[in-house]
Lab assay of single mutants.
Amino acid sequence: KTVKFDGLQFDFDNPEKALKFALEVAKQKGAEVHIHGDEIKIE
């Protein structure tokens, strides 16, 4: 899975870790997590 935000991109082999990371970043930024297939966007 790939996590994208602020023009940055982070690749994870483990989908659970990717989602956990995305949710943590979103919480800190006050943003929402959007999942599109293998891509997780924080907006």
Rank of each mutant, 00 (worst) to 15 (best):
E32R: 13
V25M: 12
N14V: 05
E16L: 08
I40F: 05
F10Y: 10
F12G: 02
K27A: 12
L8I: 06
F10I: 09
H34M: 10
A18Y: 05
I40Y: 06
K4W: 14
V33W: 02
D13L: 07
K27D: 07
A31K: 09
V25T: 05
L23G: 12
H36A: 09
L19P: 15
D38V: 09
Q28P: 01
K17E: 15
K41S: 13
G7V: 04
A18D: 12
K1C: 15
I42Y: 01
V25H: 00
H36I: 12
F12C: 13
T2K: 08
L23W: 12
F5P: 03
A31H: 08
D11S: 09
A26L: 02
L23Q: 13
L8H: 06
L8C: 15
A18R: 01
Q9I: 13
K20A: 12
K17M: 13
H34Y: 11
D38L: 09
E16A: 06
T2F: 06
F10T: 02
D6M: 10
A26S: 04
F12R: 00
D6Q: 06
K20M: 11
L23D: 14
V33F: 02
E24T: 01
N14W: 02
E16Q: 07
V33L: 11
A22F: 07
D13S: 06
D38T: 11
T2A: 04
L19H: 01
P15K: 07
H34I: 12
F5I: 08
D11C: 15
K27V: 08
I35F: 09
T2M: 06
L23P: 12
K4Y: 13
L23N: 13
L19G: 00
L23M: 12
D13E: 10
F5M: 07
E32H: 14
I35P: 03
E43Q: 09
D38H: 10
E43G: 12
E32A: 12
H34L: 10
G37R: 07
N14L: 05
D11V: 12
A26M: 04
I35S: 03
G30D: 07
K20W: 08
I40Q: 02
T2W: 05
L8V: 07
I42A: 02
L23F: 12
E43K: 08
K41T: 14
Q28C: 15
D11N: 10
K41N: 12
D38I: 11
Q9F: 09
D11L: 12
D13P: 05
F21H: 14
L19F: 05
L8R: 03
P15Y: 14
D6V: 00
K27Q: 11
